[in-house]
C-alpha cells in the first residue's frame, strides 16, 4: 500500500485536536501545578509558611493523583469532568482529566526546582524586608526559572502521550487516529504518519524548552 491514499484531512483534523488538547491542558496545569508546588515547598519544614500538616496533605494528594495510570484517571473522573465542562467526551471532555493528571506532576517538578534555590538568597531577601509574595515572585520563581522551564517541557511531552489515550473518550487527536486507523484498520501508512507527527511534536517541544533553558542559564 502506498502513501497516496493517506486521509490527509483526517490527519490534519487529528493534529489540530492534539494541539488543542495539549495547549489547553498545559495552559491550565502549569499555573495550577505552580501554585500547588509553591505551597508544597513553602509549607515544608524550615520554609516561611511552615505548616507540617498542610504540607503532608498536599504532598499526599499530589502523590495519589500521580500514581493513578492516566487511562484509569480518564474514566474515573468522568462525573467530575461532566460537572466541570458539561460533557465527558470529545476534546472538551478530555481536558479536565489531562489537567488532573498533569498538574500534580508539574507541582512535584516545581517543588523540586524550588528546592534548588539557594536558601541564603531567600534569607537575604527576607533580611532586606521583602514582602513574602514579592520573595516568591522575584526571588523563588526567578531563581528557579530554568528548572521550571525544564519542568514545563517534561510536562508538555508527557501530555502529548496522555492525549493519545484520550481516544477512549472520543477525544480524538493523533494517538487516537493511530489506534483507530493504523492499528484497528491495518493502515500502516496512517500509523507511520501519525507517529512521525508525534515524534516531530515532541522534538519541537523538547528542543524549544532546552534552548530556552540554555539561553537563560548562559551567564549563571
Amino acid at each position: 500500500m502506498g502513501y497516496e491514499n493517506i486521509p490527509w484531512p483526517l490527519i490534519w483534523q487529528a493534529t489540530r485536536e492534539t494541539l488543542i488538547m495539549l495547549g489547553a491542558s498545559l495552559a491550565l496545569s502549569v499555573p495550577i501545578g505552580l501554585v500547588v508546588g509553591v505551597l508544597v515547598f513553602l509549607t515544608s519544614p524550615g520554609q516561611f509558611w511552615q505548616q507540617i500538616w498542610v504540607h503532608r496533605l498536599l504532598s499526599l494528594i499530589v502523590n495519589v493523583t500521580r500514581s493513578v495510570p492516566f487511562i484509569i484517571m480518564l474514566i474515573y473522573v468522568m462525573p467530575l469532568t461532566r460537572w466541570l465542562v458539561g460533557t465527558s467526551i470529545g476534546v472538551k471532555g478530555a481536558i479536565p482529566p489531562l489537567v488532573i493528571a498533569a498538574a500534580p506532576f508539574f507541582a512535584r517538578l516545581t517543588e523540586i526546582a524550588l528546592r534548588e534555590v539557594d536558601r541564603g538568597v531567600i534569607e537575604a531577601a527576607e533580611a532586606m524586608g521583602t514582602p513574602r509574595l514579592t520573595i516568591i515572585r522575584r526571588v523563588l520563581l526567578r531563581e528557579a526559572r530554568t528548572g521550571l522551564i525544564a519542568g514545563i517541557t517534561v510536562t508538555a511531552v508527557n501530555l502529548v502521550s496522555y492525549t493519545a489515550m484520550s481516544g477512549v473518550v472520543g477525544g480524538g487527536g493523533l494517538g487516537d487516529l493511530a489506534i483507530r486507523y493504523g492499528y484497528q484498520r491495518f493502515r500502516p501508512d496512517v500509523m507511520a504518519v501519525t507517529v512521525l507527527l508525534l515524534v516531530i511534536l515532541v522534538q519541537l517541544l523538547q528542543s524549544f524548552g532546552d534552548r530556552l533553558v540554555r539561553r537563560l542559564s548562559r551567564n549563571q
Binding site: D118, G120, V121, A124, M128, G129, V139, R142, R145, Q220
Partner: peptide
C-alpha cells in the same frame, strides 16, 4: 530595610 546584612556566601541572586 534600615538594617543591611551581608553573608559568608554573598547570597546574590544568580539571575
Amino acid at each position: 530595610r534600615k538594617i543591611g546584612m551581608i553573608f559568608q556566601h554573598f547570597n546574590l541572586l544568580s539571575t
